[in-house]
């Protein structure tokens, strides 16, 4: 068995695969770097697979916590792992958007699933999951609830895509001016989408365009990104797990 663990800023994810690269167990917890989330997801994944730690032949860690996680045999950057994971479940993917808790990445893949180019957001929360967390807080909903209210929107209220802090005060101004929470939520999603479209233009987009990371669970953001880029966006079944899956595949390949 092979274990991949993806320790991000906002969540920890673990995937166990067998020698045939079939997923035997997986786990996601909303606690990332600096918490016991990594140990929790590993323990739960091992339990789900019905194996002990000793049954794991190789472990690969990825994500921002990859270097501080002590139980790994190897560390691989999350862009490589997300690419590996997505290519495994969507072999026709040629462009990948990954929006995590604190950064956004656009990755171009060749027909073998190898990275040929990539771009990441600058040191700024705009265009990341953190931006959505800030918007959710101002709008008085959980981040998972943003999608529900945005899907009830009748129009888009323009929100700045330059700075998450300015956008927060902008949202408050919009609400004070009488705009609805639903329309502001849609505006926040469109703001992220424009930011991502700009980033995508740096490396170019070639179909199939796939999206991973926790933000990919938000259908409204995915739809807005598709509109902004002008390309249909495919989301794998478990978008948050693609990094950990890729790490597990790296573990299996290393062992092989």
């Amino acid at each position: 068995m092979y274990l991949g663990i993806d320790i991000g800023s906002a969540s920890s994810k673990a995937v166990i695969v067998d020698g045939g690269l079939n997923i035997r167990a997986s786990c996601v917890r909303d606690s990332g770097i600096g918490s016991d989330g990594s140990e929790t997801v590993v323990a739960e994944a091992l339990g789900e697979a019905g194996i002990d730690r000793g049954d794991v032949a190789c472990t690969v860690a990825t994500g921002y916590g990859r270097l501080t996680y002590g139980g790994a045999d190897m560390q691989v950057a999350e862009l490589s792992c997300h690419s590996k994971g997505v290519y495994h479940v969507m072999p026709s993917a040629r462009t990948l958007i990954d929006i995590g808790g604190q950064d956004a990445k656009i990755i171009r893949l060749d027909d073998k699933g190898r990275i040929v180019n990539f771009a990441m957001n600058d040191k700024c929360a705009a265009g990341t999951g953190r931006f959505l967390e800030l918007m959710a807080r101002v709008l008085g909903v959980e981040v998972d609830g943003l999608m529900d209210i945005a899907e009830r929107s009748m129009k888009e209220v323009s929100i700045s895509n330059v700075c998450a802090v300015f956008a927060e005060s902008e949202v408050i101004s919009r609400l004070s001016a009488g705009e609805s929470r639903e329309d502001v939520a849609r505006g926040a999603h469109a703001s992220i989408a424009r930011r991502i479209a700009g980033l995508a233009a740096r490396v170019g987009v070639e179909p199939l365009l796939a999206m991973t990371g926790g933000v990919a669970k938000n259908r409204d953001v995915v739809a807005e990104i598709g509109k902004a880029i002008g390309c249909e966006v495919a989301v794998p079944e478990s978008p948050q797990l693609m990094g950990a899956l890729g790490a597990a595949i790296y573990a299996a390949e290393r062992r092989a």
Binding site: V76, I115, F118, M120
Partner: peptide, 9 residues
């Protein structure tokens, strides 16, 4: 992360 990814690439 960027440099490691580039190196892996």
């Amino acid at each position: 992360t960027r440099i490691q990814t580039f190196a892996e690439m």
